[in-house]
């Protein structure tokens, strides 16, 4: 236990090209009992991109996310993170992988007994060997980077509003400056201005740190403004993937009604006026 903190101190290897695959899922099949939720799903995410993941409610977006994170068991298929097969990784590799991902759960999943600052420090404490003062400063920095006021640092999650909980959870996800972050509906529950700020923040972090973002979202604004690529989940696999243009050109009925439906048109109209 004592040696563990030190063994994973080295930085993640550098990217070796523009189109390095950070996450690849191959033929992933997930079933609960007899009910097949995902059937031979394949998906690639490249370094430095923001992938928007959409799909009807109940289509299995969260199941896929949880499967990638290893919280659900899959029946078949392989998931590789940074080129390492997560099923075959040994314990040390697994820990290295964990250090390189950040997760923002849909409802925040902040630890209710800890303050926001302590929440952000949980991964730092676990993996890094930082002096207390620096850790406090870094936690405060993360808290401010996600747009929370300084005095929120000493508050408990029960004292925060829904939007603030989202931001605090993002701060925790970013605590170790991960290479890839998984965001589960990050802008739901934020006001439009806050949501736009959030999108901008995600884009900025991507630009500076080569952060890769996997974003499950229903926010058309986010999809149009920050996502480089969009993947649509339907019929238990990825129906379409591509840019916003590809989405608008798609003839899949669900994709069509999602991107060219009434709400999307209104957004479009508003943008033009």
């Amino acid at each position: 236990m004592l040696g563990r903190k030190n063994t994973i101190i080295e930085d993640a290897p550098r990217s070796n090209g523009e189109h390095e695959v950070v996450l690849s899922a191959r033929d992933v099949t997930v079933a609960f009992g007899d009910k097949v939720v995902l059937d031979k799903l394949s998906l690639d995410i490249y370094r430095g991109e923001i992938l928007g993941f959409v799909g009807a409610s109940g289509a299995g977006k969260s199941v896929l996310l949880r499967t990638i994170l290893g919280l659900n068991k899959k029946k078949a298929g392989a998931i590789k993170l940074f080129g390492i097969d997560v099923d075959k990784a040994n314990e040390l590799d697994r820990q290295r992988l964990d250090m390189r991902l950040g997760v923002l759960f849909q409802h925040g999943a902040l630890f209710s007994a800890l303050t926001v600052q302590e929440n952000v420090q949980v991964p730092m404490r676990e993996y890094l060997d930082l002096p207390k003062k620096l850790m406090d400063e870094l936690a405060l920095l993360k808290i401010e980077l996600v747009g929370l006021p300084r005095d929120a640092a000493v508050k408990f999650p029960s004292e925060l509003s829904g939007g603030m909980i989202k931001r605090a959870a993002l701060a925790r996800a970013l605590a170790l400056d991960p290479d890839i972050v998984f965001l589960d509906e990050p802008t739901s529950g934020l006001d439009p201005i806050g949501a736009a700020d959030f999108d901008e923040l995600v884009a900025k972090l991507r630009d500076t740190m080569g952060l890769t973002v996997y974003m499950v979202t229903h926010d058309l604004d986010s999809l149009f403004s920050v996502c480089d690529r969009i993947a649509v989940l339907g019929n238990k696999k990825v129906l379409v993937e591509g840019t916003v243009k590809d989405m608008l050109a798609s003839e899949e009925p669900w994709v069509k009604s999602y991107f060219r439906g009434k709400r999307a048109r209104q957004l479009d109209l508003a943008a033009r006026n």
């Binding site: 401010e144 980077l145 300084r150 640092a153 000493v154 500076t208």
Partner: peptide, 20 residues
């Protein structure tokens, strides 16, 4: 370029605020 953006972002987030 990347460091510049990052420094700017960090400065923007923290500057002008007193340490608690």
């Amino acid at each position: 370029e990347a460091a510049g953006i990052l420094l700017h972002a960090v400065a923007e987030a923290t500057r002008g605020k007193e340490a608690p």
